[in-house]
Amino acid sequence: MEGRKEFHEQLDDLYLELLRMANATLEVLERTKVAFRDGDIETAGRIIEGDDEIDQYVTRIDEGGMELLARQAPVAIDLRTIVVIMRMSQELERAADNCVNICKAIVNIRRYTLSPWIKENMDEMFRWAIKIMAKAIDAFKERDPDMVEKLVRMDDTVDRINREFLTTYDRESENETELVVRVVMTARFLERVADHAVNIGEEVYYMVTGEFAD
């Protein structure tokens, strides 16, 4: 006998809302990457303005999750799924906030010409950040607890590129302090995006296994 049908339908709706938010966040990341590469301040401005949309996802998911917790008293996998969806929405929202920060940097450095070194390395950093976030979302979709190990290894690569911005790049551009700071900060923002993706992987591990990832 199938019980609690309505509750499980509501839980499915919450799950789908998070997937929509995850897709929206990935799209923001992609658009931020292009805006940085092209120095496109109009797109950067639209991303900054559009952050409200991501915040609204968080509000809807929080409200939906709280309602299910209060009214349905979920347990076991249902409880873990709701808690993880609510936490994941926070991680995605912070990842999107980092894109907003990058877009503000794009506006601030519009008068500078980016060197091929910056473009190439930042592009690589963007590609890794997007890849790791997409993998984390796949882990959630596929309920794959083992993905977290792969995410940690990918994050190591992002950390390495981020360190290169701190070590290699600043010596090249010592005369352009604002550019140095903004570019180094952008790399740092992307490194944080990757950290949020790893957190999502850990949440998925907890959701599926009931144990906390090491």
Binding site: M1, E2, G3, R4, F7, H8, P74, V75, A76, I77, D78, L79, R80, T209, G210, E211
Partner: peptide, 19 residues
Amino acid sequence: MFTNPVDERTERYITGRFG
């Protein structure tokens, strides 16, 4: 048991998927 039951049948029961 209510956060991470060991047996799948327990999970199905307490989450209202049968019974």
